[in-house]
């Protein structure tokens, strides 16, 4: 019951119930790009880099591998033409903003992304939610959160939270930030539109 068999990129793989497609793919040594995923945090599914193609007979769909739990008999393609096309379009948004992030730059090269047509810069925050979720789920502190909708969304320090007794001694959220730009959380800097 506990052992699940699925097929990833033509190879059969055993996985445990509760593992995601991403876990199973990585156990095979497949390099699936991720950004908003973190091993200690619940799946968020916001960056869409980890999309893989799930084949069911003639039908197929793209799913976020970081949040899709393994099931017996799944057939998954991690780098099919359809995946490549979508991933390339996602990377076009990320790579121009995350120039300090070596993983993203490596993936951009892998998928042949060398320019971005997007005007909005996400240099200070790509809204991956890692810091927010880390604070909530690991520190159980809820000191930062998202505010605003759509392009107005940003990370903000929650009023009345425990900056003095908690944040000052922690700052873990800054280490987890994939932008590498200091300091990018707490709405100290929000993504600016280049004019």
């Amino acid at each position: 019951m506990n052992s699940i068999t699925l097929t990833i990129d033509g190879k059969s793989v055993e996985a445990r119930s509760g593992e995601t497609i991403l876990d199973a793919a990585r156990s095979l040594g497949i390099d699936v790009p991720t950004l908003c995923h973190h091993k200690d945090l619940l799946p968020h599914g916001s960056c869409r880099l980890c999309l893989v193609e799930l084949k069911q007979g003639a039908r197929s769909q793209l799913v976020a591998s970081c949040g899709y739990y393994v099931k017996n008999g799944l057939t998954v393609e991690t780098d099919s033409p359809r995946v490549q096309r979508a991933r390339k379009l996602v990377l076009e948004i990320l790579f121009a903003s995350l120039h300090e992030n070596t993983d993203i730059q490596r993936y951009a090269r892998r998928y042949g992304v060398s320019r971005s047509r997007y005007k909005r810069s996400l240099e200070y925050c790509v809204l991956c939610g890692l810091c927010v979720r880390y604070c909530q789920e690991v520190k159980k502190a809820d000191c930062i959160g998202f505010v605003g909708r759509g392009v107005h969304r940003e990370v903000a320090w929650i009023p009345l939270s425990r900056y003095d007794d908690t944040c000052k001694k922690c700052m873990d959220c800054q280490a987890i930030c994939p932008t590498g730009v200091f300091p990018s959380n707490w709405g100290m800097a929000s993504p600016a539109v280049e004019s």
Binding site: S46, R48, I93, L122, L127, F146, R149, R153
Partner: peptide, 8 residues
């Protein structure tokens, strides 16, 4: 604004 493709 949660996911990148829709927001951006």
């Amino acid at each position: 604004g949660k996911c990148l493709p829709c927001r951006e």
